[in-house]
Protein backbone atom coordinates (compact mmCIF):
# COMPACT_ATOMS: atom_id res chain seq x y z
CA UNK A 1 0.00 0.00 0.00
CA UNK A 2 1.14 3.49 -0.80
CA UNK A 3 -0.44 6.71 0.39
CA UNK A 4 -0.02 10.05 -1.34
CA UNK A 5 -1.48 13.18 0.23
CA UNK A 6 -2.32 16.06 -2.07
CA UNK A 7 -4.64 19.03 -2.13
CA UNK A 8 -7.48 19.79 -4.52
CA UNK A 9 -9.24 23.16 -4.35
CA UNK A 10 -7.87 23.61 -0.85
CA UNK A 11 -9.11 20.22 0.39
CA UNK A 12 -6.94 17.33 1.49
CA UNK A 13 -6.94 14.25 -0.72
CA UNK A 14 -5.52 10.97 0.54
CA UNK A 15 -4.86 8.72 -2.46
CA UNK A 16 -4.29 5.07 -1.66
CA UNK A 17 -2.83 2.46 -3.99
CA UNK A 18 -2.39 -1.26 -3.51
CA UNK A 19 -3.71 -3.53 -0.77
CA UNK A 20 -5.26 -2.32 2.47
CA UNK A 21 -5.06 -5.20 4.92
CA UNK A 22 -4.10 -6.08 8.47
CA UNK A 23 -0.46 -5.36 7.62
CA UNK A 24 -0.95 -1.97 6.01
CA UNK A 25 -4.04 -0.53 7.73
CA UNK A 26 -2.07 0.71 10.80
CA UNK A 27 -0.25 3.14 8.49
CA UNK A 28 -3.57 4.29 7.07
CA UNK A 29 -4.92 4.71 10.61
CA UNK A 30 -1.97 6.90 11.55
CA UNK A 31 -2.71 9.23 8.64
CA UNK A 32 -6.43 9.38 9.41
CA UNK A 33 -5.77 10.16 13.07
CA UNK A 34 -3.47 13.02 12.04
CA UNK A 35 -6.28 14.54 9.96
CA UNK A 36 -8.69 14.08 12.86
CA UNK A 37 -6.20 15.64 15.27
CA UNK A 38 -5.98 18.67 12.95
CA UNK A 39 -9.79 18.76 12.75
CA UNK A 40 -9.68 18.63 8.98
CA UNK A 41 -13.14 19.74 7.80
CA UNK A 42 -13.21 17.63 4.63
CA UNK A 43 -11.02 14.67 3.73
CA UNK A 44 -11.30 12.95 0.38
CA UNK A 45 -10.12 9.37 0.04
CA UNK A 46 -9.20 8.44 -3.51
CA UNK A 47 -9.70 4.69 -3.97
CA UNK A 48 -8.91 4.59 -7.69
CA UNK A 49 -5.76 2.46 -7.27
CA UNK A 50 -6.91 0.29 -4.35
CA UNK A 51 -6.75 -3.36 -5.39
CA UNK A 52 -7.86 -5.01 -2.13
CA UNK A 53 -9.37 -4.21 1.24
CA UNK A 54 -10.11 -6.48 4.19
CA UNK A 55 -12.09 -6.00 7.39
CA UNK A 56 -9.20 -4.30 9.18
CA UNK A 57 -9.04 -1.69 6.41
CA UNK A 58 -12.78 -1.18 6.62
CA UNK A 59 -12.61 -0.93 10.42
CA UNK A 60 -9.95 1.76 10.05
CA UNK A 61 -12.28 3.83 7.88
CA UNK A 62 -15.23 3.32 10.25
CA UNK A 63 -13.04 4.54 13.10
CA UNK A 64 -11.91 7.50 10.97
CA UNK A 65 -15.46 8.42 10.05
CA UNK A 66 -16.57 8.30 13.69
CA UNK A 67 -13.58 10.41 14.70
CA UNK A 68 -14.41 13.07 12.13
CA UNK A 69 -18.11 13.11 12.97
CA UNK A 70 -17.25 14.13 16.54
CA UNK A 71 -16.25 17.62 15.37
CA UNK A 72 -18.47 17.79 12.27
CA UNK A 73 -15.79 16.83 9.76
CA UNK A 74 -16.65 15.06 6.53
CA UNK A 75 -15.03 11.97 5.05
CA UNK A 76 -15.82 11.34 1.39
CA UNK A 77 -14.82 8.33 -0.71
CA UNK A 78 -13.99 8.78 -4.36
CA UNK A 79 -13.66 6.44 -7.37
CA UNK A 80 -14.17 3.13 -5.59
CA UNK A 81 -13.39 0.19 -7.94
CA UNK A 82 -16.29 -2.21 -8.44
CA UNK A 83 -14.84 -5.11 -6.47
CA UNK A 84 -14.00 -2.85 -3.52
CA UNK A 85 -17.47 -1.29 -3.71
CA UNK A 86 -19.00 -4.75 -3.56
CA UNK A 87 -17.29 -5.33 -0.20
CA UNK A 88 -18.59 -2.04 1.19
CA UNK A 89 -22.02 -2.89 -0.12
CA UNK A 90 -22.04 -6.36 1.46
CA UNK A 91 -21.01 -4.81 4.79
CA UNK A 92 -23.85 -2.26 4.39
CA UNK A 93 -21.31 0.53 4.59
CA UNK A 94 -22.19 2.05 1.23
CA UNK A 95 -25.04 3.78 3.04
CA UNK A 96 -22.82 5.00 5.87
CA UNK A 97 -19.97 6.50 3.85
CA UNK A 98 -20.43 9.26 1.29
CA UNK A 99 -19.29 7.77 -2.02
CA UNK A 100 -18.68 9.76 -5.22
CA UNK A 101 -17.53 8.92 -8.70
CA UNK A 102 -14.87 11.62 -8.86
CA UNK A 103 -13.15 14.27 -6.78
CA UNK A 104 -15.08 16.93 -8.68
CA UNK A 105 -18.39 15.27 -7.75
CA UNK A 106 -17.32 15.04 -4.12
CA UNK A 107 -16.36 18.72 -3.99
CA UNK A 108 -19.49 20.04 -5.64
CA UNK A 109 -22.14 18.11 -3.75
Amino acid sequence: MKIIITSNSGHDVLAISGEVDMDTSPELRTHLLEFIHKRTPLLLIDFREVSYIDSSGIATFVEGLKGMMVYGGKLKFVAIPEKIGEIFSFAKLDRVFEIYGSIEDALHR
Binding site: S55, I58, A59, T60, V62, K66, A91, K92, L93, V96
Partner: peptide
Protein backbone atom coordinates in the same frame (compact mmCIF):
# COMPACT_ATOMS: atom_id res chain seq x y z
CA UNK B 1 -24.51 -2.13 13.96
CA UNK B 2 -21.96 0.18 12.36
CA UNK B 3 -18.74 0.04 14.31
CA UNK B 4 -15.15 -1.02 13.68
CA UNK B 5 -14.58 -4.78 13.62
CA UNK B 6 -16.77 -7.86 13.53
CA UNK B 7 -16.99 -8.20 9.75
CA UNK B 8 -14.50 -10.99 9.10
Amino acid sequence: DIRPGGLG
